[in-house]
Design a binder for these strands. Sequence first.
DNA 1: TTACTCACG
DNA 2: ACGTACGTGAGTAAG
Length: 648
Amino acid sequence: MRTPQQPSLFDEMEIGGAPAAPRGGEPRVRPGPAGSSLPNPPDASPQPSLFAGEEPTVVLPEGYRVVATGAALAALVARLTAVPRFALDTETTDLDPMVGRLVGISFSPAVGEAFYVPVGHSVGRQVPWHRVAEALGTLLGDPARAKIGHNLKFDLRVLERAGLRVSGPHWDTMIAAYLVRAEGGHGLKECARRYLGREMQQFEDLIQQGRLAIQQMEVGAVARYACEDAEATFALREALAPRLAETDQEAVFRLECELVPVVAQMETDGVAVDVATLEELARALEEQLVAKAEACFAAAGQRFNLNSPRQIGAILYGSLGLPASRMTATGPSTDEMALRELAGQHALPGRILEYRELNKLLTTYALALPRAVSPITGRIHPGFHQIGARSGRFSCAHPNLQNLPKDSANTIRRAFVAAPGHVLLSADYSQIELRILAHVSQDPALLAAFQAGEDVHARTAADIFGVPLAAVTPEQRRVAKGINFGLVYGMSPQGLAAQLSIPVPEAERYASAYFARYAGVKTAMADILRRARAQGFVTTITGRRREVSGLKAPDGRARGQAERQAINAPIQGSAADVIKAAMVRLAPRLPEFGARMILQVHDELVIEVPEERAAALREVVVSIMEESPAPGFRVPLRVDTQIARAWS
DNA sequence: TTACTCACG
DNA sequence: ACGTACGTGAGTAAG
């Protein structure tokens, strides 16, 4: 693997005496407010060809064209102007759009037809970038023309960095492919194989063939590859559109495509982090960790690798002879629940738990997060994956900021801060999944509880224990809260019992008391299961589909798991639909406040806004998020907000 | 690469 | 009797 510290052979190479393109060595730090995207044109100086005097080695297939002259560029614009939609694809020097520079853009206005516009090659003839941008800008910004792309988020970010804004409507073939079929890969090449029966040239083959970085390769070779990408993408749209219709997922597809530019913006803007706070925390944790490790070794009577579950198991269940309660696939478990059970019998298990807590904070957060800060912007730019979760939720990675510790005892979230002069506005849905359940079930008692604005856990407690609302004890509310969480997860009495640390028969009594009071919920769940068994899938309020297999499995455990998935997916997935739709409605309102959406954590949105506009924006955010998400959705939605310098 | 553990909603 | 609920990503060990 290459690292920025180890430039390849080719970085030293200069062609035709022109200076090599500037590379990542000198990061231009862009401090301050969330990334106002400075123009960042590709490294595009036309240079004498490395291959001057040689015959072109690549013959383009019929229908593919290189756009390397002003006349060809005009012809491309005319051709694209004549069609209602076209596919586009970008070639870049890096897969990270924060780092990669534009090498070329390919377009396809029809099946069998594609154009490649080289803009960042270091060899061969090409039209200067400012002329390309000028010629294509209007077209790409035209809201009357649909842009088709495979993972458009990437191309939008790269083009934006190069100074070209691409407006919708967007038609993302990767998202379409995922909605049509979640299993298997969703790369362009795989999709072309599956839906077009085509075997495409792999990127690795292109690179290996030239043994050069893409921007240094002969334009013709890249053109052949890039044209195929754009053209296959165009063809994919035609193959996938009818499948989206067959599965009744046009509405959710439209939602996801409208979300693409919103997510692109969120990733590009990133979030500011106070590295000094994290470094200070890391130092403190390291100190505590050493002491805790020594305490563990003292209790164990020997030294061992505290990060190895296997070695911990050998000590606890071998040397110390403690009884193993829970098993994993490969041996006795040392997870938190297992160690808690042993805590009364020996000092070691409790100390291991304390060690693990510190170690998690140190390695996963305090040490790892500073490494994720971009040297280019000084901010962290996590990837938000619209199709990352089967339920319809986002997933978040590199780093995952959706699972930062929430415990007020630590300072991890406090290290996430607003830019100078700004604050973070956090807005989260209250009880969104239970409200979805109320809507889906139309259970009168649950609907009434929300419409009355009651504390729903207390209401549930009052109902299942048969006491007045005002008389509910904290313990009763705790049990009711467990029930309500359990409902969303497709609860089993066993799971409920384990979660609440109560006997199974008691959990069974609570569950039946609940379903007696909320009979609509019981019948709604039975309906979902019946339909799931008949159709093989469940759906959300927006029509997002999730296939569920195993509902007819003879193995009770497998069947139970499938049933819980079938119950949970419409609830979790509808909640995802609700917040995604709110993001789409909210995004166009943010510029007037100078604000940017920077994080989404399932039921929470975090927005960075100039301090003096925060109060005004809060009203807008709340009113948009609380809007009814669908016709006939009568459960009131409630959004709580916080405004602070930091995310905590 | 797989298994385990653990952070979040 | 049941292997302890739904959905994720990351760090580490060990093969």
